[in-house]
């Protein structure tokens, strides 16, 4: 795969949030305003690019047995770094992201990319992969947050919009799930992703031992 493809795949085709369904915790929790969404997304992108870079550089040095602790230390280092910078320069955003900023450390997108991609690939593809995935995450967060902010609070990036009636439910958790579901469905439609093929009892690993098959005396399809 060319370097450009490594970058592009995170944006839509393998979008971590909307296709991979990773990092749901920040996705649902902080997408109440578009500004929060973009801030969280960019912070995650920074950490993702940094950790992918360092981990792909160190992939030969880190022994297998301490792989995960090393990755987590590196990721946590970058998270603390962005936290300090944000506290120093954008205190407003720092306050509204709150705990979720430190929780980037355990965001499965970052550890996932480190484990699946950066630990097996060269430096440049790893950085591009991190950048693509991070921007994909940022775009989806901003999109979800914009929809929720417009419908729920009648504003966008804090600017008042002429919305007839705001529906508070969109700001609440239930609205978050609703918007996320709709956007996932929409993206799958664009990406022409097929739903998983239903596996019949013939290919099932339980091989006719489960209750559904027992009555019929083993594999049916």
């Amino acid at each position: 795969m060319s370097n450009l493809d490594e970058f592009k795949k995170g944006l839509l085709k393998e979008n971590p949030t909307l296709v991979g369904l990773l990092g749901m915790c920040p996705t649902l929790a902080i997408t109440t305003t578009a500004f929060n969404g973009i801030g969280m997304g960019l912070a995650t992108t920074f950490v993702l690019v940094g950790s992918n870079l360092v981990i792909s550089l160190l992939k030969k040095v880190i022994p297998r047995s301490v792989k995960l602790p090393c990755y987590i230390v590196i990721i946590a280092g970058f998270v603390t770094l962005i936290e300090m910078l944000m506290k120093g320069y954008i205190p407003g955003l720092y306050k509204s992201l709150g705990t979720f900023l430190s929780l980037i450390t355990v965001n499965c997108i970052i550890l996932g990319r480190a484990e699946v991609f950066a630990s097996k690939n060269k430096v440049l593809p790893s950085v591009l992969d991190g950048l693509g995935m991070g921007l994909g995450f940022t775009c989806s967060l901003t999109l979800i947050a914009s929809v929720r902010e417009i419908l729920g609070a009648g504003t966008l990036f804090g600017l008042k919009l002429p919305v007839l009636n705001t529906m508070t439910i969109f700001i609440l958790p239930a609205g978050g799930f609703f918007v996320l579901g709709c956007i996932i469905a929409f993206v799958n439609r664009i990406a022409k992703k097929k739903p998983p093929v239903t596996v019949g009892c013939a290919e099932c690993s339980l091989n006719g031992e489960c209750a559904a098959c027992e009555n019929k005396g083993g594999a049916e399809e």
Partner: peptide, 21 residues
């Protein structure tokens, strides 16, 4: 290796903290 990585990360963070706090 783990100790070394932790030490380096901690040292860098102390440096940044001094700069931004």
């Amino acid at each position: 290796v783990l100790t070394l990585i932790c030490t380096i990360v901690a040292a860098l963070l102390i440096f940044v903290h001094k700069l931004t706090y």
